[in-house]
Simulated scan of single mutants.
Amino acid sequence: MIEILKVIVLGIIQGITEWLPISSTGHLIIFEQILSLGDPKFFEVFKVVIQFGSILAVCVLYFKRLNPFLSTKSISNKKETWNLWGKIIIGCIPAGIIGVLFDDLVEDVLSGTLVIAIALIVYGIAFIILENTKRRVRISRLEDLDYKTALGIGCFQVLALVPGTSRSGSTIIGGTILGCSRTVSSEFSFFLAVPVMAGASLLKLIKFGLNFSMTQVIWLLVGTFVSFVVSIIAIRFLLSYIRKHDFKIFGYYRIILGIIIIITLFI
C-alpha cells in the first residue's frame, strides 16, 4: 500500500512538472531519494515510461487538431494538419539523433543531483532575463510557424537531455527567442513531446527488457494513469495562466529549488 502511494505521488509530480517549465526528470530524481521504489534500474524505466500518460493527455486534449483523418475536416484543414506534423517531425530530429547517441552519457555523467540543481538555477535566470527583455512577437498563431523556426526550437530541445533543464522549458525559451508568442511556444512544445517522449520511453523499455514482475507492472500502470489525469489539468492550467501572466514565477521557483538542493547537498 505504501509503495502504491509513492507511485501515485511520483505520477502527480510527472504530470505537473512535465508541462510546467520546471523539469519533470529533475523532480523525479530528487523525490526518488525520498520515495524510493527499491530497484534503481526499475526506477530509471519507471520515470520514463509513465511519460506515456503525459503523451496521452496531449493526444486527448488536441485530438481534433492533431488528427488529419477526421471526416469533419475539409481538405485544406487536413493539409494544414499534415503540415503541422511535418513541423513536429522536423523539430524532433535534433533531439532524436543526440538522444540516441548520448543516452548512456546522460545517465552516467549528467544525472547527478548537483547538475540538476545548477540546471534549475541557470534556466530560472534565463526565464527571468527573457521576460525582462523587450522582444518582437512575429509568430502569434501556430499556423504561422515555419519549418526553419520549428527546427530551431528542436535544437533548443536538445538542451533538455541534461536533467534539470526541462524539455518544455528548453522549447518554450527557444520558441520565445525565435519570435513565437508564449501560447505558440507552449503548444508547439506540447506537440514536440509526443514523438520525443514516446521514442524515449520505447528506447528505455528495449534497453531494460520486459522482465517486470506483476507488482512492477501495476506500478507502471498506476503511475501512467495518474500522470495522464494530472497532465490534463496541468496543460489547461498553463495555457490559462500564460494568457495573463509571464514565465517569471517559474524562473523564481527554479532558482529557489536549485539553491535549496545545493544547500541540502553541502549540509
Rank of each mutant, 00 (worst) to 15 (best):
residue 13 I to R: 02
residue 16 I to L: 10
residue 17 T to C: 09
residue 20 L to P: 03
residue 32 E to S: 05
residue 33 Q to W: 03
residue 37 L to Y: 08
residue 40 P to M: 05
residue 45 V to S: 10
residue 45 V to D: 01
residue 53 G to H: 11
residue 56 L to W: 12
residue 58 V to A: 07
residue 59 C to L: 14
residue 61 L to K: 03
residue 62 Y to K: 02
residue 68 P to T: 06
residue 80 E to N: 13
residue 84 L to N: 11
residue 91 G to I: 10
residue 97 I to F: 04
residue 99 G to I: 02
residue 103 D to E: 12
residue 114 L to A: 14
residue 115 V to R: 06
residue 123 Y to E: 02
residue 125 I to K: 01
residue 127 F to T: 04
residue 128 I to N: 09
residue 131 E to C: 14
residue 134 K to W: 11
residue 137 V to G: 07
residue 141 R to S: 15
residue 142 L to R: 09
residue 142 L to T: 14
residue 144 D to T: 15
residue 148 K to D: 09
residue 150 A to C: 12
residue 152 G to L: 04
residue 155 C to Y: 02
residue 158 V to S: 07
residue 160 A to E: 06
residue 161 L to E: 01
residue 162 V to S: 07
residue 169 G to M: 00
residue 175 G to A: 13
residue 182 R to M: 04
residue 184 V to Q: 15
residue 187 E to N: 12
residue 189 S to K: 11
residue 199 G to N: 00
residue 200 A to P: 08
residue 201 S to N: 13
residue 206 I to Q: 15
residue 208 F to N: 15
residue 213 S to A: 12
residue 215 T to K: 06
residue 219 W to F: 15
residue 221 L to M: 09
residue 222 V to I: 12
residue 223 G to N: 01
residue 225 F to T: 04
residue 226 V to H: 07
residue 228 F to N: 07
residue 230 V to F: 02
residue 234 A to W: 03
residue 235 I to C: 03
residue 240 S to A: 02
residue 241 Y to P: 00
residue 241 Y to R: 01
residue 243 R to H: 01
residue 250 F to W: 02
residue 250 F to D: 01
residue 252 Y to C: 00
